[in-house]
Design a protein around this nucleic acid. Structure first.
Lengths: 343, 343
DNA sequence: CTGAAAGCGCTTACAG
DNA sequence: CTGAAAGCGCTTACAG
């Protein structure tokens, strides 16, 4: 393998000089700099990352802890992170906790989970990453970050009440409020809601947004709020219950999957979504375009959440003195398609 | 930070002894081993990864180069890789090339792409990963791997003709053949095909499988083979062309997205997929379950491809002498749903 | 502007 | 069974 020392010999200078050139120090004459750079390029030499990391205690890498890579939100967030890293010459090391795969949707009730997170953090500290991004699988308050962390950490797609940790999420409240306003503007006054699981922050926030819009428009919510479990089948069941005794013209589903379940039930009853009953979703998953009629929903700015998270962590790494801690929210985008009827 | 040296002082032994214990060497007495291990646990000491990597020239990490993380196939392959790595105590470092995001579906016609791959490989060599897995976005013959690589590399989801490089793919030919056989067994004799792009290996292989099944069943293909571009819209266009003059009872689409386009056209013409015309897809993307009727398709064993790739690379890293080079194929799974009518 | 030397935290022959 | 010492490939005061 080709090393600094060999380059130095080749150029008849000291390794100090070569190192200085490599690190852009200004105390080298133009002529020797030029000569050395030429040799470096010719040999294809690259500094040993391990040696550099060991000595300089700076690795230009950040660890990414992911609740689960196969959650629909994860790849695009990570894509955003990595596009930012690429521009700033940082590496990403992934630790995929695989919580959903291992323990199902209710994994956060599993005792072992906080320990897994701790282990991942320890691991990353041993690897000497410069910082850590925690990419959550859904919004929640994360409280298992060690306090004596020593390196910056930012939380993506969730938040924390611990001091000194930035987070970036999307704005559930505003998105739900906007969507409800659209429903109301389309003439719907009696709107049923199929929410997610009860203990879930997305659920709480979206209900807040929904109620806010209803209130601002002087509407009492005459419809019901039912709770599903985010899955297609629970949308079906909720629709069944709703149709049996309620009186409404639209159903706001807190995700696209449950909206698909509503479609299932309506189809079964020969009711046409978007005509007999209006339906709205949330998430803008790819499948939402393949429903008939295509589902009106809310797009989550996953890529931007990733970019923003990356920006925050690099700021904290490179200028800890000026980087403020912030809990930021990125706005969602309303996606109008064909499942809401103007009445 | 707590180091080997401090542990050694704490225990009044040499750093050599502590190191030997840490690395499971057998030449240490049980009593000192016990004593040291206790201290290590108490202090939460973890060996510095950089120092270890520098000295031992072994980092227990492998670099993963990805054509594009946001391709539907990538996350699950990587999930498979990482689950295997987790079991064997390896880390994954990701380099997401973002080819589709940057340059669109035809990115491989872009000159810059081979250089990006080379750069990623160089990068990983500087980081001193023990091996590299290249996760392709679609099957193709990859020919831009440097020959003097020095570390093992395996290709996932594509292959190469270069010597010494293993690959793992799924079996397009068999899957297409099986699906066609199912169509034939369901009574279909005149089957049209909407293939992918012409220069694509998936296209070639699936056509091969299709023709094989037709031939084995003594059927001449009376239908047409049309070429799409993998997108929904091209399925729509192909269906339009097909319906205008051909005579067939089923359409085999080479991916689910184009099958959705066929649905679109059929619906427009008040034809019912799975009743008037049978439709089959490929990929088993999540959206295929949300089409009406649900699409019969082929599931690609992405997770298994990832696992297998991880297994191959670790074998090559840890026992290069016995690890053979292989081009392996994992079998697909036929997914029967409601879009093929028995006639 | 240039270079000799110390040292980052480990592992690994080697000697005892 | 235990330890002193060399060395992995860099960066960083420091002296000149």
């Amino acid at each position: 393998m080709i090393t600094l020392k060999k380059i130095a010999e080749e150029c008849s200078v000291s390794i100090t000089t070569v190192s200085n050139i490599l690190n852009g120090k200004s105390n080298v004459s133009e002529s020797t700099k030029e000569r050395v750079l030429k040799i470096i390029k010719a040999t294809g030499y690259r500094p040993n990352y391990m040696a550099r990391g060991l000595r300089a205690a700076k690795t230009n890498s950040v660890g990414i802890i992911i609740d689960d890579l196969t959650e629909f939100s994860s790849p695009e967030i990570i894509d955003g992170i990595m596009s930012y890293f690429e521009e700033h010459n940082y590496k990403a090391i992934l630790e995929n906790l695989r919580f959903y795969s291992k323990w199902g949707t209710q994994w956060y009730h599993n005792k072992g989970y906080e320990e897994s997170v701790q282990q991942a953090i320890d691991e990353f500290k041993a690897i000497k990453v410069d910082g850590i991004i925690y990419v959550a699988g859904h919004a929640r308050c994360i409280s298992c970050i060690p306090n004596n962390l020593e390196i910056p950490l930012v939380i993506s797609y969730a938040f924390t009440e611990q001091k000194g940790i930035s987070s970036v999420e999307f704005d559930d409240v505003k998105a739900a409020c906007d969507l409800t306003n659209h429903l109301i503007a389309s003439g719907h006054k009696k709107i049923a809601v199929i929410a997610g699981t009860k203990d879930n922050i997305h659920t709480t926030r979206r209900i807040e947004g929904f109620k806010k819009a209803m209130k601002e428009n002087g509407l009492k919510n005459e419809g019901k709020i039912l709770y599903g479990n985010w899955k297609r089948e629970s949308g079906y069941q909720a629709a069944k219950e709703l149709l049996s005794d309620s009186d409404f013209t639209a159903i706001f589903c807190f995700n696209d999957l449950m909206a698909a379940g509503v479609y299932d039930y309506l189809n079964e009853k020969n009711l046409v979504p978007g005509k007999d009953i209006s339906v709205a979703g949330f998430d803008n998953r790819p499948m939402s375009q393949f429903l008939t009629p295509q589902l009106t929903t809310v797009d989550i700015p996953l890529y931007d959440i990733g970019r923003k998270s990356a920006e925050l962590i690099l700021n904290q790494i490179n200028s800890p003195e000026t980087a403020g801690i912030q809990q930021s929210f990125v706005e969602c985008k309303f996606v109008e398609r064909d499942s809401i009827k103007k009445i």
